[in-house]
């Protein structure tokens, strides 16, 4: 399988400014050296704690967030991450869908206007065919074409999310980053949207980078998972293996804190201070909360493990 997107050692920081003239005082190290790849036709997920930099990573991979260092390549060609033009050329192939379906559509544009804008911009179809094309796209996401003249506020969350999917489908991208696209929706609607996404993935030969904090969703949809903690990937591997044999203590902690119907099995709490992303420790970032910590953990753990499951930990679980 060829790698569609390859990211190497991506860093993306936010400046913290202060004082009268807004000098940069420190950085929020939101993404702190992440490498990942997405194969053609693959669904890859990124999970991790709230605020660990998942969304920032997603935005950075699309050039919507400044990348400080690192290299990116798409379809084997490397992208000049600091050049606006080189991103502009990728707009058609790389797309994103966001969590909150309520703010993802311009409230002043009809669905038709929202959907036709990118089609015209990328010259996908002629003006005369726009109506048909928009109707066709709505059908693809199982909505009625008659709905195209309505405004976003008359749709439910699930419907809006479908519309957002239709909008990016229109320009036929190769890779879609889905940032928490179902977490604002009801469980039953979630399942419908996920099913739709899987179906479209097959029929349109899409690759998906699925960002989520919901392990059940991630597990249901993806083959390969990256687990992030404080701006870094701590473990990656096939979902079956991560869920059954987590190697990294944080992955294990994630699994242990999932609530179940069984009242005798309370979710396990992670104890200990979380370091601030403005002031990360030089060693393993998880050390302050890790039960397996040892002397060595003061040094940054290197990538280890087999080919498909790898982890960044000095004392991996077995």
């Amino acid at each position: 399988m060829m790698n569609l997107l390859e990211a190497h050692d991506i860093e993306s920081y936010f400046d913290i400014r202060g004082g009268l003239f807004g000098r940069i005082q420190s950085y929020v190290k939101a993404v702190n050296g992440v490498s990942l790849n997405v194969g053609e036709g693959e669904i890859v997920s990124v999970v991790g704690e709230s605020g660990c930099g998942k969304s920032t990573l997603g935005l950075a991979l699309l050039g919507l967030q400044k990348i400080r260092s690192g290299s990116l390549s798409f379809q084997g060609e490397s992208i000049n991450v600091n050049d606006f033009k080189s991103w502009q050329g990728l707009r058609k192939d790389l797309q994103i869908i966001f969590q909150d379906p309520y703010t993802s559509l311009n409230p002043r544009l009809t669905i038709y206007e929202s959907l036709s804008e990118p089609l015209l911009l990328h010259g996908i179809c002629k003006k005369s065919e726009l109506k048909d094309k928009v109707g066709y796209l709505l059908e693809q996401v199982e909505l009625k074409p008659e709905m195209m003249d309505r405004f976003p506020h008359s749709f439910s969350g699930g419907q809006r999310q479908r519309i957002c999917i239709a909008r990016v489908l229109g320009i036929e991208p190769k890779l879609i980053v889905c940032d928490e696209i179902v977490s604002a929706l009801d469980v039953s609607v979630q399942a419908q949207i996920l099913e739709l996404l899987l179906k479209l993935k097959e029929s349109h030969n899409l690759s998906l980078l699925f960002i989520s904090h919901d392990l059940a969703v991630v597990r249901a949809i993806s083959r390969r998972i990256y687990v992030m903690y404080l701006g870094r990937v701590v473990e990656e591997g096939p979902s079956e293996m991560l869920f059954h044999q987590p190697k990294h203590p944080y992955t294990k902690a994630l699994l242990d804190s999932i609530p179940t119907l069984d009242r005798s099995r309370r979710p396990v709490l992670l104890e200990g201070e979380v370091p601030s992303p403005t002031n990360l420790p030089t060693g393993c970032a998880f050390a302050s909360r890790c039960k397996y910590k040892s002397e060595k953990c003061g040094e940054l753990p290197q990538r280890s493990g087999l080919d498909d499951q790898s982890y960044y930990c000095h004392n991996p679980l077995n």
């Binding site: 977490s183 604002a184 994630l254 804190s257 396990v268 992670l270």
Partner: peptide, 11 residues
């Protein structure tokens, strides 16, 4: 806790 991951949800 719908917007939160499981560790923070637990917390």
């Amino acid at each position: 806790t719908t917007a939160l991951d499981v560790t923070i949800q637990a917390q």
